[in-house]
Write a protein that binds this DNA or RNA. Structure first.
Length: 430
RNA sequence: GGACAGAUGCCGGAGUGGUUUAUCGGAGCGGUCUUGAAAACCGUCGUAGUUCACGCUACCGAGGGUUCGAAUCCCUCUCUGUCCGCCA
């Protein structure tokens, strides 16, 4: 959520910044300003009347206590009551309207986010690792999984529906090994580990910005205000919703392993083969909550943490910075890490590391008390900044390992760094 | 799921319709005293909105209602505790 005060003060700037997303928000901003003015007018009328009512009511109390007559005051109060009732009915209508409009407005791109239309305009940052030269035609990960009988797509459909996959044997074990490896890496990098509810309520989903605009992307529990989380970003960030965090514990660096659930509405036909796009997948998530002045450095740091996992697994990847047009709804700046898939001869997203400025924190009310050295009494609560990224998506990591480490006979090697987590060194048909 | 009890500020805890601007205690912070500390004493101590500002308004689990006036009365919901049932 954007700051209404900022919209009031510099509406043209906000309009311009939002236009970099290639969507038109001029009308929405104008509408917000209009409703905002109406609301503030009603609010001040209401408060004036309430002040008058409180004063007179107190007087009535005092007179009655002394046994005096308060007829005159009571008559006035009845008039005030009628006026107040009328205004009190209008005021919330405007404030609700204002909030509704604000919640649908995306974050403004940061000044260091390159301007651009779509994916094509994303800025290349770096490429890491050596793409292996194959002296045979590399198979796709699901072909390898089929051959080894470790991916069972049919039974996934039998148990649930399409885009659910059963993993067996070495694939299941590798998922588990990767989970432990990634969590240990996150700990090494200073992120505190959590085990979290994977069902969250709507307030949490509003907090991180999935709601109200992207309701159709999540699975809802019947007859309950509860949803399967699309990412651990939701519970991890909302842990601190409505809290004032002690300054000395900042920055908060957090991590959690969770399954993630996405309805994939609107992506019918895309990535239908393999485990790249599933309704349920495992992921280790990294979250940082910090002060505004530390956010840029923390964003770099968190991204490097995610990169270090790809490096440890020796998977070639590239890092791109998303342009304004490709930026997610809540983000102000974002790096995507894309891992190399030799069979497809292309990079595919495996981690998205976003900086949200105070956009999520304003929705979720995550704050700290900014000390005022001159006057400690004037210390003010201030919104924090949130940053998160995958460290990493486990299914896609597994797929990338299978492809990059494959042998001609359909087996694949297990990256050395996983030795402490997995006994096997080679995945082959039994 | 059933029965009962509860929800007040950072914490404990009072408060059953009107000088309550939420009593009091503890913790915290500032000060006096002290070589320093402790003790004692004095002061301070929530959040948000609105206003150029003084100030005003709202918030006692959440929402609604009664009233000139609600922490207090009424209704609905949520959560917590205890006991019972069920259960990995």
């Amino acid at each position: 959520m954007l700051d209404i005060k900022k919209i009031r003060q510099e509406p043209d700037l906000i309009k311009e910044l939002l236009s970099y997303r290639n969507l038109e928000f001029i009308n929405v901003i104008d509408q917000i300003l209009e409703v905002d003015e109406k609301w503030r007018k009603k609010l001040s009328e209401k408060e004036t009347l309430e002040a008058e009512r409180n004063k007179l009511s107190k007087l009535v109390g005092q007179k009655k206590a002394k046994g005096e007559d308060a007829e005159e005051e009571l008559k006035q109060l009845n008039t005030i009551k009628d006026n107040l009732k009328e205004i009190s009915e209008l005021e919330p209508i405007f404030s609700e309207e204002q909030k509704k409009l604000l919640l649908e407005l995306p974050n403004t791109p940061s000044s260091c986010t390159p301007r651009g239309k779509d994916e094509e305009d994303n800025k290349f940052i770096l490429e890491w690792g050596e793409k292996r030269e194959f002296d045979f035609t590399p198979l796709e990960h699901h072909e390898i999984g089929d051959k080894l009988k470790v991916f069972d797509f049919e039974r996934g459909v039998k148990l649930a529906k399409s885009r659910f996959t059963v993993m067996a044997g070495i694939a299941a074990k590798l998922e588990r090994a990767l989970m432990n490896f990634m969590l240990d890496k996150a700990s090494e990098n200073g992120h505190q580990e959590f085990n979290l509810p994977v069902i969250n309520n709507s307030e949490s989903l509003y907090g991180t910005g999935q709601f109200p605009k992207f309701k159709e992307d999540v699975f809802k529990l019947e007859n309950e205000d509860l949803y399967l989380i699309p990412t651990a970003e939701v519970p991890l960030t909302n842990l601190f919703r409505d809290e004032i965090i002690p300054e000395e514990s900042l920055p908060l660096r957090l991590t959690a392993f969770t399954p993630c659930f996405r309805s994939e509405a609107g992506s019918a036909g895309r990535d239908t083969r393999g485990i790249i796009r599933q309704h349920q997948f495992n992921k280790v998530e990294l979250v940082t909550i910090c002060k505004a002045e530390d956010a840029e450095a923390e964003h770099e740091r968190l991204t490097l943490n995610a990169e270090s996992i790809l490096q440890a697994l020796n998977l070639p990847y590239r890092k791109v910075q998303l342009c304004s047009g490709d930026l997610g709804f809540s983000a102000t700046r974002c790096y995507d890490l894309e891992v190399w898939f030799p069979s497809q001869n292309r990079y595919r997203e495996i981690s998205s590391c976003s900086w949200f400025s105070d956009f999520q924190a304003r929705r979720a009310q995550i704050r700290f008390k900014r000390p005022n050295p001159q006057n400690p009494k004037k210390s003010k609560n201030e919104l924090l900044h949130t940053i998160n990224g995958s460290g990493l998506a486990i299914g896609r990591t597994l797929a990338a390992i299978m492809e990059n480490y494959q042998n001609e006979n359909g087996s694949f090697e297990i990256p050395e760094v996983l030795t402490p987590y997995l006994h096997e060194k080679l995945a082959q048909t039994a």
